[in-house]
Amino acid sequence: MARKSSASRRAATKPASGRRTKRKPAAKHKAAKCVYYFGEGKADGNGKMKPLLGGKGANLAEMTRIGLPVPPGFTISTEICTYFYAHNRSYPRTMQAEVEEGIRRMERIMGTTFGDTKAMPLLVAVRSGARDSMPGMMDTILNLGLNDETVLAVAKATKNERFAWDCYRRFIQMYGDVVMGVQKRPEEDHEPFETVIHELKHERHHKDIDDTKLSVADLKEIVARFKNLVKERTGKQFPNDPWAQLQGSIGAVFGSWMNDRAIVYRRKYNIPQEWGTAVNVQAMVFGNTGVNSGSGVAFTRDPATGEKVFYGEFLINAQGEDVVGGVRTP
């Protein structure tokens, strides 16, 4: 039997139309969502999304959806925590744009601007949020967005200079501890920031006084001493750029998933390490504006006995960390 020529074989393999078939372009994979927004009665997440948003993030989304007055914000998912540790403490390329969009949404809802030096600036809280509650094990930063200029804008906008400087000294203390690592050394008996406050109280008032009794001048001096302490311990200036503050805080909260406290707690309660934590960034609501404001915690059961009764504790002229951290007795 005669063999076909090479030309005949090529012709036989061509499509009947004589045209080349076009390859379909490869499907583009949509980048995974990093940030889930909530505010104004709308939320990207819901209460069933605890594995992705953590307990706090899922509940904030659910409360927003059912119409409760939840300050706006966004949750960076637990998947980003996994990515963070798998990629040398870095983030997906798309995350920064999503975080910036989250801040823009908060600005629009709150009517304030992040880093504003002319009017009341947007200040935010940055908190952890694991799938299962891990109270006190991971880190929190409050009053983020304050610096030497925005603190003056807060004082002017609120007509409450003491409140502004109280927020600023709180922020430097929390950020200095959590993000910059200014913590108690082995040879020290007390936390360094608390030592600064104690020394100032005895220099100026010759006794221990409640923090609420500190004057504006006292608080300004504490801010200056706190900054000197940060510079002395770290060799770095305290950051003034609110965006740099936010980036540092997000990294610190993700980093706190692997701190010693959190590791021990997970082992005790059989919480898997691979679950990770979410990070919640939310507009601040202030309990330290004076005697007509306060902060507290509430439960649907008595935490000591388990009895099904409404139970709560609060402090006047305080922020939430004063209640849960034992700074003052409720």
Results as ranks from 00 to 15, higher is better:
residue 16 A to E: 12
residue 74 F to H: 04
residue 58 A to T: 12
residue 199 E to S: 11
residue 140 T to D: 10
residue 20 R to C: 10
residue 20 R to S: 13
residue 42 K to E: 13
residue 256 S to P: 00
residue 269 Y to M: 07
residue 149 E to I: 02
residue 10 R to P: 02
residue 53 L to P: 07
residue 249 S to A: 09
residue 190 H to Q: 15
residue 312 G to S: 05
residue 264 V to L: 08
residue 46 N to D: 15
residue 135 P to C: 05
residue 74 F to D: 05
residue 289 T to V: 08
residue 175 Y to S: 06
residue 283 A to C: 05
residue 29 H to G: 07
residue 175 Y to N: 10
residue 211 D to C: 06
residue 254 F to D: 01
residue 168 Y to K: 00
residue 26 A to F: 08
residue 228 N to V: 07
residue 172 I to C: 05
residue 252 A to L: 03
residue 297 V to N: 09
residue 210 D to L: 12
residue 326 G to R: 03
residue 147 N to D: 09
residue 198 H to F: 14
residue 104 R to Y: 13
residue 122 L to V: 02
residue 34 C to L: 04
residue 155 A to N: 11
residue 223 V to L: 07
residue 55 G to L: 06
residue 252 A to W: 07
residue 298 A to T: 10
residue 3 R to N: 09
residue 223 V to T: 06
residue 258 M to V: 10
residue 35 V to H: 13
residue 29 H to T: 13
residue 12 A to W: 10
residue 255 G to P: 00
residue 194 E to A: 12
residue 234 T to K: 06
residue 326 G to V: 04
residue 16 A to V: 14
residue 233 R to A: 04
residue 159 K to W: 12
residue 8 S to M: 14
residue 254 F to A: 04
residue 56 K to T: 03
residue 83 Y to G: 00
residue 42 K to Y: 11
residue 287 G to H: 09
residue 21 T to H: 15
residue 324 V to E: 00
residue 229 L to S: 09
residue 238 F to A: 07
residue 119 A to Y: 01
residue 160 N to P: 00
residue 151 V to M: 02
residue 232 E to A: 06
residue 165 W to F: 13
residue 327 V to K: 11
residue 324 V to P: 11
residue 147 N to Q: 08
residue 210 D to Y: 12
residue 228 N to F: 05
residue 91 Y to H: 02
residue 175 Y to Q: 08
residue 213 K to T: 10
residue 196 V to N: 12
residue 227 K to Q: 03
residue 101 E to I: 08
residue 65 R to K: 13
residue 169 R to G: 02
residue 303 P to G: 03
residue 134 M to P: 01
residue 311 Y to S: 14
residue 262 A to S: 15
residue 69 P to A: 09
residue 88 N to W: 01
residue 129 G to T: 06
residue 17 S to W: 08
residue 327 V to Q: 09
residue 47 G to F: 03
residue 27 A to V: 14
residue 62 E to P: 05
residue 48 K to Q: 13
residue 306 G to D: 11
residue 217 A to S: 10
residue 137 M to A: 00
residue 326 G to M: 09
residue 199 E to P: 00
residue 154 V to G: 05
residue 160 N to Q: 05
residue 220 K to P: 04
residue 191 E to F: 07
residue 327 V to W: 08
residue 153 A to F: 02
residue 255 G to M: 11
residue 150 T to V: 03
residue 102 G to H: 07
residue 303 P to S: 03
residue 279 V to G: 01
residue 97 A to K: 13
residue 246 L to C: 08
residue 61 A to K: 01
residue 178 V to T: 11
residue 315 L to K: 01
